[in-house]
Design a protein around this nucleic acid. Structure first.
Lengths: 123, 123
DNA sequence: CCAAGTGTATTGTTGTATTAATACACATGG
DNA sequence: CCATGTGTATTAATACAACAATACACTTGG
């Protein structure tokens, strides 16, 4: 039901869109699957329904979702259920670049960072 | 002279503050060192002097910088020149946590991510 | 058929964040 | 001494996010 942090600086509607991008690319949401309704999500997180609608609308424009009139929003059929690993890695690239810039500014040794990340990734 | 991207969603003043935090913690800016003046930075990047001043002001409040009246801003003397590696790693932690959440959502294998990051870090 | 469920367009309001424009107080240093 | 350099207080302009309250078009399912 989406991990939303209403306090974050990241706008809520964008948190939802970006999460949709990753969950669909990763295959945790499969083509045709019906999403929780705008009012469900809004009620659960105590946010405005229009905020969720906005996120869904952007995801539709992006081709991630499609609107089933009267039923709700579903994962678009045109989306190949799971993107290739290379495609999924590409979604991570900007974040990795920013991270490595920060590592350099902090003058941290690469292996220490890699060890810590490895542990976080459950390895 | 700071790496600023005026187009980024990240506010300019915060880009500066966070960069100061890392450069000081990493030891690339040493205690007592004089920073480029507000107008120098603003002119160089074609941004408003007040934006730079705001960043400097916040860094002073945070104890990173101190104001030398009539001369400018300098790296605070109280700052131990270089933080311990553990302290520097802590500054990276939030970013690592967000990254690992995205990796899970994308269902990417840990070793692929670690290999890519390793390459970006110059191995 | 029709109540109840979809998403959404519309309008207005509120609160906040960011940046800009301007003018000011102050210290330096030849 | 005073031109020149600091940083900054103040005010305003702009944009954006989120909320609120409706009303609407549509489909489903009993």
């Amino acid at each position: 039901m989406f991990a939303i942090q209403p306090t974050s600086a990241e706008p809520i509607y964008r948190q939802i869109v970006e999460q949709l991008r990753r969950l669909i690319a990763g295959g945790q949401l499969v083509a045709g699957e019906l999403l929780p309704s705008v009012r469900e999500v809004a009620g659960f997180h105590a946010i405005n329904p229009m905020t969720v609608s906005r996120a869904y609308g952007m995801a539709e424009t992006e081709g991630l979702l499609e609107r089933l009139r009267g039923k709700g929003m579903a994962v678009a059929a045109t989306t190949r259920s799971t993107a290739t690993q290379t495609q999924r890695m590409a979604l991570l690239e900007p974040q990795l670049l920013e991270l490595s810039r920060h590592v350099r500014e902090l003058e941290l040794p690469a292996d220490a960072v890699l060890r810590r990340l490895g542990r976080l990734l459950g390895d």
